[in-house]
């Protein structure tokens, strides 16, 4: 929390782990990095135990590279695949009980705004379809009804991947899974429309096929949450194990789903739109 906590006290450099020293020297703390610089700086997220070729891991990687202020951000996750990578990053991570991520985030955001009234502290929830729309549905919706100012990101793998492949509310209709042998009987929940109705000021839906666009969307969601109210991103992050996608075909599958039902969609209220237009205008003035 804050740049002064990241720096190593003088004289202690040689006792710190090499990864940490690298992070302070070549990491993104205190710099405005662009997602296109990936591979040329030390990333916030470290080696993690997620499966080979997992696109949820990919989304988490791009997410950490696109945080506007990593040193002033707290990430909240819950049971599910994403926490395996989220907890390996150099950003404070809180593990909420299954389903209560948005309730924890509400309290945390309020506490932070009292403790640091003159600073901006971002709170971001990243949880799966089970944590947010199935088990945590009530608390997710109520945090939006209360217009809490933080970002909720749903990494939707359309299955309970950790526990053997049970269907979730977000699985597409008719899909046959290891623990849903009859095929799913109901439609996929329309989380984007729910978020719009519940009062989110910025809602986006995407498939991770374009890192620049993911970064832009994540940045926008966090900036809008600072000033206006709850924001929501619905990201398709396939489970290549439960859906039996060969690892080298994971990106191909994401591109296919993007054409089918995960085309890029962005919605925001008028005041948020004005806010972003103002930011773009200022950027262009600086350029000129």
């Amino acid at each position: 929390m804050g740049l002064e906590y990241v720096r190593i006290s003088p004289g202690f450099e040689k006792y710190m782990p090499k990864d940490y020293v690298d992070l302070v020297q070549f990491g993104p703390f205190g710099k405005q990095i662009d997602v296109q610089q990936l591979g040329q700086f030390k990333e916030l997220v470290e080696e993690h135990p997620m499966c080979a070729g997992c696109f949820m891991a990919y989304f988490v990687r791009i997410f950490y590279a696109s945080l506007p202020n990593p040193e002033d951000t707290i990430v909240i996750g819950t049971a599910g695949c994403a926490r395996l990578a989220l907890s390996q990053a150099a950003v404070p991570f809180i593990y909420g009980n299954y389903g209560d991520t948005n309730a924890v985030a509400s309290g945390l955001k309020r506490a932070l705004s009292i403790r640091f009234p003159d600073k901006v502290k971002d709170v971001v929830v990243i949880a799966g379809d089970g944590g947010l729309i199935d088990i945590g549905f009530g608390m997710t919706m109520h945090s939006w009804f209360r217009r809490e100012k933080f970002t909720t990101i749903m990494v939707d793998n359309e299955v309970y991947g950790n526990t053997g492949g049970q269907e979730s509310g977000m699985s597409p209709k008719g899909v046959q899974l290891k623990m849903a042998p009859k095929g799913k009987q109901f439609d996929k929940i329309n989380a984007v429309e729910l978020a719009k109705t519940a009062g989110c000021v910025y809602v986006a839906k995407l498939a991770p096929t374009n890192p620049k666009r993911i970064a832009k969307t994540v940045k926008r969601a966090i900036l809008a949450a600072r000033h206006f109210g709850p924001t929501f991103i619905h990201a398709y992050t396939s489970c290549n194990i439960e859906y039996s996608i060969p690892t080298e075909k994971v990106l191909e599958d994401a591109r296919k789903r993007e054409k089918q039902d995960f085309g890029f969609y962005e919605w925001m209220t008028d005041e948020v739109k004005e806010f972003f237009e103002e930011i773009e205008r200022q950027k262009e003035e600086v350029k000129a």
Binding site: Q36, L38, G39, L44, E47, H48, M50, F55, Y58, P211
Partner: peptide, 16 residues
């Protein structure tokens, strides 16, 4: 081009 680096799911693995 740097496209492979931008699409690797593992952090700090495929570098440029």
């Amino acid at each position: 081009c740097k496209q492979c680096v931008l699409f690797c799911p593992e952090p700090n693995t495929l570098m440029y």
